[in-house]
Computed example of a mutant assay.
Amino acid sequence: MSRTPRFKSRAPHLLRRTALPVYACLTLTALTALTGCSDASPSTPPAAARGTEPATTTPRTPASGPGTASASASGSASAKSAAPPVHVSIPSLGINSAVMRLGLNPDRTVEVPPADKGMTVGWYTGGSVPGQPGPAVLIGHNDTRYGRAVFHDLKKIAKGADIAVRDDRGTEIHFEVTDRETASKKAFPTARVYGPTDTRALRLITCDGSFDAAGHPVDNLIVYAERK
Rank of each mutant, 00 (worst) to 15 (best):
S128V: 05
E111Q: 15
Q132A: 15
K159V: 13
K185V: 06
H174A: 00
H174S: 00
W123V: 05
D143E: 15
A98Q: 10
T182V: 09
G122I: 06
G195W: 08
T197S: 14
I205W: 03
H152L: 10
T144I: 10
F151H: 02
I173D: 01
T120D: 11
H152C: 05
I157F: 11
H152N: 13
S210F: 15
D168T: 12
P196Q: 08
V137H: 03
S210E: 14
G134S: 10
G94H: 10
W123K: 02
W123S: 04
V110P: 00
A187Y: 12
S128Y: 08
K185G: 13
D167K: 05
H174F: 11
F175T: 02
V177D: 01
A187D: 14
T109K: 06
K186T: 14
V165L: 06
D143W: 14
I95H: 04
P196T: 09
R101D: 10
L204V: 04
P196L: 08
F211R: 14
D167G: 06
D107A: 09
V129C: 14
R166V: 06
P106A: 08
R145W: 08
F151S: 03
G122W: 03
V99M: 02
K159Q: 11
P133F: 08
D116L: 09
D107H: 03
L204Y: 10
E181C: 02
G195E: 07
L202C: 06
H174K: 15
Y194S: 15
P130Y: 07
R145H: 10
L138G: 02
G127D: 00
L138Y: 00
I157V: 15
N142G: 05
M119H: 13
V112T: 14
P130G: 07
V99Q: 03
Y146M: 04
L138N: 01
A161L: 06
L102I: 06
F211S: 08
T125Q: 12
F175L: 04
L138P: 00
D168I: 07
G122P: 08
Y146H: 13
F188N: 01
A164K: 15
Q132I: 03
E172V: 14
D179T: 02
K117Q: 15
P130R: 04
N142M: 13
R180A: 13
A187L: 09
T190C: 07
A201P: 01
G170Q: 13
V99H: 04
E111R: 09
G170H: 11
A158P: 01
A158D: 13
I205A: 12
Q132Y: 09
K186M: 06
T109M: 07
W123A: 03
G126V: 09
R145T: 11
V150T: 10
W123C: 05
M119R: 08
W123R: 06
P106S: 11
F188T: 04
A98L: 11
S184N: 07
T178K: 12
R108V: 09
G94I: 15
D162V: 09
Y146I: 00
R145V: 08
P135C: 05
E111C: 04
A161E: 03
Y146F: 15
